[in-house]
Design a protein around this nucleic acid. Structure first.
Lengths: 332, 332
DNA sequence: CTGAAAGCGCTTACAG
DNA sequence: CTGAAAGCGCTTACAG
């Protein structure tokens, strides 16, 4: 493996010139450019970017904290991040956190020790204590959660609005007893979707406090389990699930109980993951701009790192209702 | 941000001593240990690992090449890799390649430029030309594919055997017309599963060459599309899909054609992804030790990097048939 | 057990 | 446009 000194010697120039050829080629004369290029080819030189990064005190890597990489929604967000990162010359480090704050904080070390330049968090926790001004101690972007703040950039959808629209679809079909399978209790996203659900019910003259709420954790299993907690004395005619995975698990559980969707109960999900169209029945859901969420988060982190952006933008990306076969008017 | 020199000065020792405290604490006297610890605490020192890595000429990062990170099988493999990597002190860089050799080769640059120490490839391509002895030019492990070689470690399952067992389950149920939805044509894994399928048919006295073969790409969409290529003049009574995603897409497509599973056609998948149990009907499939595949691959790469292992072990992990409701005896 | 010092391979401010 | 040289913050072989 040749290094910059050998290339410089071979080309008869200084190492500074080689370095400039690689990073600021516009500063070199045509003749020098030619000479350097030949030397690099001749020696098959690849610059040691570990050395460059060290010297610039930048890892050109970002850390993505994801609660569950096997969740298809998150894996698509990561795809978007990865896309944009590659375009900007950054690589993506993966931190699977299982919603565990301790693990999140241990990943913070990657930034403290300079192996990553910043963090994109896809969950709601903060992987660090905020400083005295309420700011993150490292470059930080939060994506997919329902948080608005002037302390760091965020990327999200209108969770309240989308949940409201989706629930209104159910009330407009004539449903008045609509249960809800929620996400984790601490998640702001859960709270906002719950609020949207409630507002839609109120708009339809339905008392939200009489509806059954069941907490889940966004996993298919928790949706499946919820099926067995659904009241049989006063069964809902529709159920709003806060993501598609839980809706898919729920439908499976309902079927195991002999309840058919949408004939007996309508079910809606949230996210529009790939599986939503292939499930039986295909899910009525909210389509999120999943990859775009990731790309935007990475774009913000890039601006935080490589420009003087300080205004902490709060992106809100559009969603769309997708009507499929898991919803119908109630029979009764 | 304090550096090692400041800590050394504060502690009244040399920088070498600080470095040793961090990396070889057993070499220090109890007294020095105490002094250094206090200095580090006092200055809130975090070592710059970018500098350490540079100085050791090691990134302590591995690159995972994955054809499609949104594929739930791969995302679980990555989970296993990530787990083991963290345990070994490595971080995981993600390369989403979309089965595209050009992208794979561009990711190779991360290793050539020292930003990653080695590669775990989850697909069948090689991201580089082999050298004169047929060896990879960088530390390399292939996982999940059906490759055996003495040039680099691999981790896999017995694809032929598992496909054979699964197909035999269908023949034992009495099926004699069994179509097959395959993976990509170039993939050794596809070839091995095809071979297993054929052997099972032959064992049952069925002529494999009379069975319908449809090539897919492991996506749900390709499974869905396959449903519309299934012969209606001589419809199979069972279909072997080379992964669960395609089976899920296929079942959806069959249903859209008015064909019911398993009443009209039995369907089996492969992988036992989480969705397999929640699909309708739940899939009969082959359970792979998905996370273990990832952990083992990372363990091998670690040995390649940090020990003098040179025997290029070829791990074969066990699988298990999982019987669910997508298979039944044929009606005719 | 500890320190002085060279070295890892780049980048870049400075001078010309 | 180009070069000489200092510097980035560690590690480690060597000497004591």
């Amino acid at each position: 493996m040749s290094n910059i000194r050998e290339v410089a010697k071979h080309a008869g120039v200084s190492t500074a010139t080689i370095s400039r050829y690689l990073s600021h080629p516009e500063k070199l004369s045509a003749k020098t450019t030619e000479v350097v290029k030949n030397a690099i080819d001749a020696l098959n030189y690849e610059p040691n970017l570990l050395a460059r990064n060290f010297s610039k005190s930048r890892a050109y890597a970002v850390l993505v904290l994801v609660p569950d990489i096997a969740n298809p929604f998150f894996s698509r967000v990561i795809k978007g991040i990865e896309d944009e990162a590659q375009r900007k010359g950054y690589s993506v480090l993966l931190g699977n956190t299982r919603y565990c704050n301790e693990r999140e904080r241990s990943y913070l070390q990657l930034v403290k020790t300079r192996q990553a330049d910043g963090i994109i968090q896809l969950s709601y926790n903060l992987p660090f204590p905020l400083d005295d001004e309420g700011c993150p101690p490292v470059p930080f972007v939060q994506a997919c959660e329902s948080i608005t703040t002037d302390k760091f950039p965020t990327v999200k959808i209108n969770n309240l609005g989308a949940a409201k629209a989706l629930t209104s679809h159910l009330t407009q079909l004539g449903h008045t007893n609509i249960a809800c399978i929620l996400g984790p209790r601490q998640s702001p996203l859960t709270k906002d979707r719950l609020q949207g659900y409630r507002e839609a019910l109120e708009n339809a003259g339905i008392n939200p406090s009489e509806q059954q709420l069941i907490y889940g954790d966004f996993s298919m299993l928790s949706g499946f389990n919820a099926a067995f907690e659904i009241s049989s004395s006063r069964p809902p005619t529709a159920i709003f699930c806060m993501n598609d995975d839980m809706a898919i698990g729920l439908i499976r559980g309902l079927r195991d109980r002999g309840i058919s969707v949408p004939d007996d109960i309508s079910v809606v999900g949230f996210d529009d993951i790939e599986q939503a169209k292939y499930s039986d029945p295909p899910l009525t859901t909210v389509s999120q701009p999943t990859e775009a969420l990731g790309r935007q988060a990475m774009a913000y982190l890039y601006e935080l790192l490589d420009t003087d952006m300080t205004n902490n933008p709060q992106a809100e990306l559009p969603t769309e209702l997708v009507f499929r076969a898991s919803t119908a008017a109630p029979k009764r």
